[in-house]
């Protein structure tokens, strides 16, 4: 049986109001993959973390934009969130739980830890002054056989 494929690309302003919009969009995109509620909630949390990171750390300017893409290949979902902002100097350090550059804003530093906990794979590429791209993959387990 041939794999079902689908793609989606979205560009939106780096405004916090778009965090809910971005995660709802991914929910709508993945609905057709027949996920469990837990799988949907896991992806929703991870997307919220990645998009929040892009908005908070990507830019100091709300008028800049965040790009998000979703790819479905069979039961494999890949979500990429990209900003063209300040970039991360030390990605390994940023991935450590409770690491935050903004403790005064009540940021917990758990963003990457949550992305790792709730997705199957996560890949971060970043360059200072160029921006950051986070690619996350989730295998949606429930397969009806005819998909």
């Amino acid at each position: 049986m041939e794999k079902i494929t689908n793609t989606m690309h979205l560009t939106f302003d780096a405004k916090s109001v778009n965090e809910a919009f971005a995660r709802m969009t991914v929910m709508a995109f993945m609905a057709d993959m027949n996920p469990t509620i837990d799988e949907m909630e896991d992806v929703k949390t991870a997307v919220s973390e990645a998009v929040t990171n892009a908005i908070i750390h990507g830019y100091d300017d709300e008028s800049r934009q965040v790009e998000m893409s979703c790819i479905r290949e069979g039961q494999k979902l890949t979500v990429t969130v990209t900003d063209h902002g300040v970039g991360i100097e030390n990605v390994e350090e940023a991935r450590q739980p409770f690491y935050t550059t903004k403790p005064e804003q009540d940021r917990s530093g758990m963003g990457f830890a949550f992305m790792e906990a709730f997705m199957d794979e996560i890949d971060i590429t970043s360059q200072v002054g160029e921006g950051t791209s986070i690619t996350m993959t989730k295998y949606i387990a429930r397969d009806d056989g005819d998909r």
């Binding site: 919220s48 929040t52 009540d106 917990s108």
Partner: peptide, 13 residues
């Protein structure tokens, strides 16, 4: 119904 790590920061703060 939904909470991400921002909520963790709020609670800890």
């Amino acid at each position: 119904e939904f909470m991400d790590s921002s909520g963790i920061g709020i609670v800890i703060g």
